[in-house]
Amino acid sequence: MKDMWTAIPARGRVILLVLLAALLVAPAALDRYFMSVLILIFYFAFVGQAWNIMMGYAGQLSLGHALYAGLGGYVAALLWFYFGIGPWIGVFAGVAVAAAFGAVIGWLGFRFGIEGVYFALLTIAFAEFTRIAFDNMSFTGGPGGLFLLYEEQRTHEWWNLRGGPLLFYYLGLALAAGGALLTAWLARSRLGYQWLAVREDQEAALSLGVGAFRAKMIAVLISASMTAIGGVFLAFYYNSLFPAQAFDIGRSIEIILAPVIGGLGTIFGPIVGAFILTPLGEALIALTAKFGVDLPGTKAVFYGLTLMIIITLRPDGVWPWLKRLLGLEPKS
């Protein structure tokens, strides 16, 4: 743990501490709108980190991550809705279900050698399958959605994740920071090296005795579990769930935006990506609204354009470049 900290150059440590301190005290100065933007940033940084483990480290292209977020959210929400079981307990059930799905997808994919685009389609197939299934089930609310009651008098029950922006702000911050810490720790572990080896060249990794199947299975389990936690967070933040949103491939793509833009296979990539994309998207909406234009799809077009530009010109993402710019490259 300690060498994770010392591995960061001194200037980086200062920047990190200042930013963290600023984020900790920020709610005192921010209005509701800016809080909501930051909450979204934290969410995307966290689930982006989850996807980063899978793709950036273990090299497995999953495009169905909405499945895990949706399952986590639905399971916890249903437990709360029907049995009054709070999300702090419900999250375990949500994670268990999502991890079980991850295990099935991983087992099928890795055991039968389904790789690359084929693996991506396998993950999409599962997410779409689940979306349609949820659309056709009545106890989940079907296509009409599942709504969690927002009761004014219960906004202080943090133990039930019923609360205002402040609760979700600090919870989101904790998730984003915790996710980054976990990833940093994993990346420096034996498992982390095995992931990188599998990502770079699976056959060569096998010939060095790396148990590729096991390493990839652990990656999908961790990634699915983290994403499910993010899903619970989002479900209780928005208080509503629709299959057409929760399991949509669009939701999966949202999850991959931040790590791709920020930089795959880096700890700070997903965080940087989330901090760039979400505010820019919001600013764009505000700007177009100011000119009296209100076209649905504007933000998405902007995201699409950003994706294309970044992947064409800077396929390693923004972070490696930003790191050099800030002089944070460790001296070699």
Binding site: G297, Y303, G304, L307, T312
Partner: peptide, 13 residues
Amino acid sequence: FILLVGLAIIIVN
């Protein structure tokens, strides 16, 4: 994939 997903997002929106 990401290049073409970006293109797809732009087209559809």
